[in-house]
Design a protein around this nucleic acid. Structure first.
Lengths: 110, 110
DNA sequence: TTGACATATTCCCATATGGGCATGTAATGT
DNA sequence: ACATTACATGCCCATATGGGAATATGTCAA
Protein backbone atom coordinates (compact mmCIF):
# COMPACT_ATOMS: atom_id res chain seq x y z
CA UNK A 1 0.00 0.00 0.00
CA UNK A 2 1.07 3.55 -0.58
CA UNK A 3 0.79 6.48 1.76
CA UNK A 4 -2.62 7.36 3.12
CA UNK A 5 -4.60 9.60 0.83
CA UNK A 6 -4.18 13.31 1.51
CA UNK A 7 -7.94 13.51 1.46
CA UNK A 8 -8.30 11.08 4.31
CA UNK A 9 -7.95 13.54 7.15
CA UNK A 10 -6.76 16.94 8.27
CA UNK A 11 -3.33 15.63 9.27
CA UNK A 12 -2.61 14.55 5.73
CA UNK A 13 -4.12 17.63 4.20
CA UNK A 14 -1.91 20.04 6.11
CA UNK A 15 1.18 17.97 5.48
CA UNK A 16 1.44 19.84 2.20
CA UNK A 17 3.17 23.22 2.67
CA UNK A 18 1.15 24.99 -0.01
CA UNK A 19 -2.06 23.93 1.63
CA UNK A 20 -0.83 25.35 4.89
CA UNK A 21 -0.09 28.63 3.17
CA UNK A 22 -3.54 28.70 1.66
CA UNK A 23 -5.14 27.95 4.99
CA UNK A 24 -3.19 30.67 6.71
CA UNK A 25 -4.21 33.17 4.09
CA UNK A 26 -7.82 32.12 4.42
CA UNK A 27 -7.57 32.59 8.14
CA UNK A 28 -7.50 36.31 7.43
CA UNK A 29 -10.90 36.15 5.80
CA UNK A 30 -12.96 34.91 2.94
CA UNK A 31 -11.09 34.96 -0.38
CA UNK A 32 -11.70 34.06 -4.00
CA UNK A 33 -9.51 31.64 -5.87
CA UNK A 34 -8.10 34.51 -7.88
CA UNK A 35 -7.07 36.35 -4.73
CA UNK A 36 -5.27 33.28 -3.47
CA UNK A 37 -3.50 32.88 -6.79
CA UNK A 38 -2.46 36.55 -6.73
CA UNK A 39 -1.31 36.47 -3.16
CA UNK A 40 0.57 33.19 -3.14
CA UNK A 41 1.69 33.07 -6.74
CA UNK A 42 0.81 29.45 -7.40
CA UNK A 43 -0.72 28.29 -10.66
CA UNK A 44 -4.49 28.58 -10.70
CA UNK A 45 -5.12 24.86 -11.33
CA UNK A 46 -2.80 24.07 -8.47
CA UNK A 47 -4.75 26.31 -6.12
CA UNK A 48 -8.03 24.78 -7.24
CA UNK A 49 -6.72 21.31 -6.61
CA UNK A 50 -5.43 22.15 -3.17
CA UNK A 51 -8.69 23.82 -2.29
CA UNK A 52 -10.51 20.70 -3.34
CA UNK A 53 -8.46 18.63 -0.95
CA UNK A 54 -9.01 21.11 1.86
CA UNK A 55 -12.70 21.08 1.09
CA UNK A 56 -12.94 17.31 1.24
CA UNK A 57 -11.50 17.21 4.73
CA UNK A 58 -13.66 20.21 5.60
CA UNK A 59 -10.76 22.49 6.40
CA UNK A 60 -12.44 25.11 4.23
CA UNK A 61 -15.95 26.06 3.20
CA UNK A 62 -17.05 27.63 -0.07
CA UNK A 63 -19.88 29.69 -1.41
CA UNK A 64 -20.42 31.03 -4.85
CA UNK A 65 -20.65 34.73 -5.56
CA UNK A 66 -21.30 35.24 -9.22
CA UNK A 67 -18.35 33.82 -11.06
CA UNK A 68 -16.29 33.84 -7.91
CA UNK A 69 -15.91 31.00 -5.51
CA UNK A 70 -15.31 32.35 -2.04
CA UNK A 71 -13.39 30.12 0.31
CA UNK A 72 -12.90 30.49 4.00
CA UNK A 73 -11.05 28.52 6.62
CA UNK A 74 -13.08 26.27 8.84
CA UNK A 75 -10.99 26.57 11.95
CA UNK A 76 -13.11 24.01 13.74
CA UNK A 77 -11.54 21.29 11.58
CA UNK A 78 -8.10 22.28 12.78
CA UNK A 79 -8.97 21.70 16.40
CA UNK A 80 -8.30 17.96 16.34
CA UNK A 81 -4.78 18.74 15.20
CA UNK A 82 -4.36 21.26 17.97
CA UNK A 83 -5.69 18.86 20.52
CA UNK A 84 -3.48 16.04 19.36
CA UNK A 85 -0.37 18.16 19.71
CA UNK A 86 -1.57 19.37 23.09
CA UNK A 87 -1.12 15.89 24.44
CA UNK A 88 2.60 16.52 24.27
CA UNK A 89 2.50 19.92 25.87
CA UNK A 90 3.05 18.63 29.36
CA UNK A 91 5.89 16.54 28.05
CA UNK A 92 7.81 19.31 26.35
CA UNK A 93 7.42 21.64 29.28
CA UNK A 94 8.82 18.90 31.45
CA UNK A 95 11.65 18.22 29.05
CA UNK A 96 12.51 21.89 28.85
CA UNK A 97 12.62 22.02 32.61
CA UNK A 98 15.04 19.11 32.67
CA UNK A 99 17.30 20.84 30.21
CA UNK A 100 17.32 23.91 32.40
CA UNK A 101 18.04 21.91 35.51
CA UNK A 102 20.94 20.18 33.85
CA UNK A 103 22.31 23.55 32.85
CA UNK A 104 22.04 24.77 36.44
CA UNK A 105 23.87 21.80 37.81
CA UNK A 106 26.60 22.16 35.27
CA UNK A 107 27.01 25.76 36.28
CA UNK A 108 27.28 24.91 39.97
CA UNK A 109 29.96 22.35 39.29
CA UNK A 110 32.25 24.88 37.76
CA UNK B 1 6.81 16.41 -8.64
CA UNK B 2 5.31 14.04 -6.12
CA UNK B 3 4.29 14.80 -2.59
CA UNK B 4 6.87 16.22 -0.24
CA UNK B 5 9.01 13.58 1.41
CA UNK B 6 7.68 12.38 4.75
CA UNK B 7 11.14 12.96 6.07
CA UNK B 8 11.03 16.62 5.20
CA UNK B 9 9.33 17.89 8.31
CA UNK B 10 7.22 17.04 11.34
CA UNK B 11 3.99 17.85 9.54
CA UNK B 12 4.62 15.14 6.99
CA UNK B 13 5.91 12.70 9.55
CA UNK B 14 2.79 12.82 11.69
CA UNK B 15 0.51 12.61 8.68
CA UNK B 16 0.94 8.85 8.94
CA UNK B 17 -1.46 7.38 11.53
CA UNK B 18 0.90 4.64 12.62
CA UNK B 19 3.59 7.16 13.35
CA UNK B 20 1.16 9.10 15.47
CA UNK B 21 0.37 5.95 17.41
CA UNK B 22 4.03 5.28 17.96
CA UNK B 23 4.62 8.83 19.12
CA UNK B 24 1.74 8.67 21.55
CA UNK B 25 3.04 5.47 22.98
CA UNK B 26 6.50 6.93 23.34
CA UNK B 27 5.01 9.91 25.11
CA UNK B 28 4.45 7.55 28.03
CA UNK B 29 8.14 6.87 28.34
CA UNK B 30 11.21 5.38 26.78
CA UNK B 31 10.51 2.12 24.94
CA UNK B 32 12.39 -0.47 22.94
CA UNK B 33 11.41 -1.43 19.42
CA UNK B 34 10.17 -4.74 20.69
CA UNK B 35 7.87 -3.08 23.18
CA UNK B 36 6.39 -0.94 20.46
CA UNK B 37 5.86 -3.98 18.27
CA UNK B 38 4.20 -5.80 21.14
CA UNK B 39 1.99 -2.92 22.11
CA UNK B 40 0.87 -1.76 18.68
CA UNK B 41 0.97 -5.03 16.83
CA UNK B 42 2.70 -3.76 13.70
CA UNK B 43 5.37 -5.76 11.89
CA UNK B 44 8.80 -5.17 13.32
CA UNK B 45 10.32 -3.88 10.07
CA UNK B 46 7.42 -1.50 9.76
CA UNK B 47 8.05 -0.12 13.22
CA UNK B 48 11.75 0.28 12.51
CA UNK B 49 11.02 2.17 9.33
CA UNK B 50 8.57 4.50 10.99
CA UNK B 51 11.01 5.13 13.81
CA UNK B 52 13.61 6.01 11.25
CA UNK B 53 11.35 8.63 9.76
CA UNK B 54 10.51 10.02 13.18
CA UNK B 55 14.19 10.10 13.99
CA UNK B 56 15.08 12.02 10.86
CA UNK B 57 12.69 14.79 11.69
CA UNK B 58 13.86 14.59 15.31
CA UNK B 59 10.45 13.67 16.68
CA UNK B 60 12.21 10.93 18.63
CA UNK B 61 15.62 10.28 20.13
CA UNK B 62 17.36 6.94 20.58
CA UNK B 63 20.01 5.42 22.72
CA UNK B 64 21.36 1.93 22.72
CA UNK B 65 21.10 -0.35 25.72
CA UNK B 66 22.74 -3.63 24.95
CA UNK B 67 20.87 -5.14 22.08
CA UNK B 68 17.96 -2.84 22.67
CA UNK B 69 17.38 0.46 21.01
CA UNK B 70 15.46 2.73 23.35
CA UNK B 71 13.36 5.39 21.72
CA UNK B 72 11.67 8.33 23.34
CA UNK B 73 9.51 11.14 22.07
CA UNK B 74 11.13 14.50 21.63
CA UNK B 75 8.15 16.64 22.44
CA UNK B 76 10.05 19.78 21.58
CA UNK B 77 9.79 18.86 17.91
CA UNK B 78 6.02 18.77 18.14
CA UNK B 79 5.82 22.35 19.32
CA UNK B 80 5.95 23.88 15.84
CA UNK B 81 2.88 21.86 14.98
CA UNK B 82 1.14 23.01 18.10
CA UNK B 83 2.04 26.59 17.42
CA UNK B 84 0.90 26.44 13.85
CA UNK B 85 -2.51 25.17 14.85
CA UNK B 86 -2.68 27.78 17.59
CA UNK B 87 -2.86 30.46 14.95
CA UNK B 88 -6.38 29.29 14.27
CA UNK B 89 -7.44 29.15 17.87
CA UNK B 90 -8.78 32.66 17.93
CA UNK B 91 -10.61 31.94 14.73
CA UNK B 92 -12.38 28.81 15.86
CA UNK B 93 -13.42 30.37 19.13
CA UNK B 94 -14.84 33.23 17.17
CA UNK B 95 -16.59 30.91 14.75
CA UNK B 96 -18.05 28.90 17.58
CA UNK B 97 -19.35 32.10 19.10
CA UNK B 98 -21.04 33.00 15.83
CA UNK B 99 -22.69 29.64 15.67
CA UNK B 100 -24.03 30.14 19.16
CA UNK B 101 -25.25 33.62 18.37
CA UNK B 102 -27.08 32.40 15.33
CA UNK B 103 -28.71 29.75 17.43
CA UNK B 104 -29.82 32.36 19.95
CA UNK B 105 -31.36 34.54 17.29
CA UNK B 106 -33.18 31.66 15.79
CA UNK B 107 -34.59 30.82 19.17
CA UNK B 108 -35.79 34.36 19.77
CA UNK B 109 -37.58 34.44 16.44
CA UNK B 110 -39.72 31.50 17.30
C1' DT C 1 -25.83 34.05 -28.92
C1' DT C 2 -21.24 35.23 -28.37
C1' DG C 3 -17.35 36.33 -25.83
C1' DA C 4 -14.73 37.20 -21.76
C1' DC C 5 -13.79 36.00 -17.20
C1' DA C 6 -13.30 32.75 -13.05
C1' DT C 7 -12.67 28.09 -11.67
C1' DA C 8 -12.57 23.24 -12.04
C1' DT C 9 -11.14 19.04 -14.16
C1' DT C 10 -8.46 15.87 -16.96
C1' DC C 11 -4.34 13.71 -18.63
C1' DC C 12 0.41 12.60 -18.31
C1' DC C 13 4.41 11.67 -15.59
C1' DA C 14 8.27 11.58 -12.33
C1' DT C 15 8.56 10.43 -7.75
C1' DA C 16 7.67 9.15 -2.85
C1' DT C 17 5.20 5.97 -0.31
C1' DG C 18 4.40 1.91 3.01
C1' DG C 19 3.65 -2.99 3.31
C1' DG C 20 5.60 -7.80 2.98
C1' DC C 21 9.35 -10.60 2.93
C1' DA C 22 14.05 -11.79 3.07
C1' DT C 23 18.28 -10.66 4.60
C1' DG C 24 21.94 -7.96 6.93
C1' DT C 25 24.10 -6.42 11.26
C1' DA C 26 25.13 -5.61 16.08
C1' DA C 27 25.31 -7.27 20.88
C1' DT C 28 24.99 -11.12 24.09
C1' DG C 29 25.53 -15.74 26.10
C1' DT C 30 27.89 -20.16 26.01
C1' DA D 1 33.57 -19.39 17.23
C1' DC D 2 28.60 -19.98 17.17
C1' DA D 3 23.84 -19.63 17.98
C1' DT D 4 20.42 -16.38 19.47
C1' DT D 5 18.26 -12.16 20.20
C1' DA D 6 16.96 -7.44 18.68
C1' DC D 7 16.86 -4.34 15.13
C1' DA D 8 17.76 -2.26 10.64
C1' DT D 9 17.82 -2.46 5.59
C1' DG D 10 16.98 -3.80 1.01
C1' DC D 11 14.00 -5.10 -2.63
C1' DC D 12 9.67 -5.31 -5.06
C1' DC D 13 5.28 -3.39 -6.07
C1' DA D 14 0.68 -1.27 -6.05
C1' DT D 15 -0.79 3.17 -5.30
C1' DA D 16 -1.22 8.18 -4.24
C1' DT D 17 0.90 12.32 -5.22
C1' DG D 18 1.44 17.26 -7.18
C1' DG D 19 3.00 19.90 -11.05
C1' DG D 20 2.19 21.49 -15.99
C1' DA D 21 -0.54 22.11 -19.86
C1' DA D 22 -4.74 21.79 -22.07
C1' DT D 23 -9.42 21.77 -21.79
C1' DA D 24 -14.07 21.79 -19.73
C1' DT D 25 -17.63 24.13 -16.98
C1' DG D 26 -20.11 27.91 -15.25
C1' DT D 27 -21.42 32.87 -14.94
C1' DC D 28 -22.05 37.34 -16.46
C1' DA D 29 -22.16 41.19 -19.98
C1' DA D 30 -23.26 43.13 -24.39
Amino acid sequence: MARAATTSDAFNAVAEPRRREILQFLATGERSVGEIVMRLGFEQPSVSKHLRVLLEVKLVDVRRDGRHMLYRANAEAIRPLHEWTSRFERLWKHQLLQVKERAEKKKQME
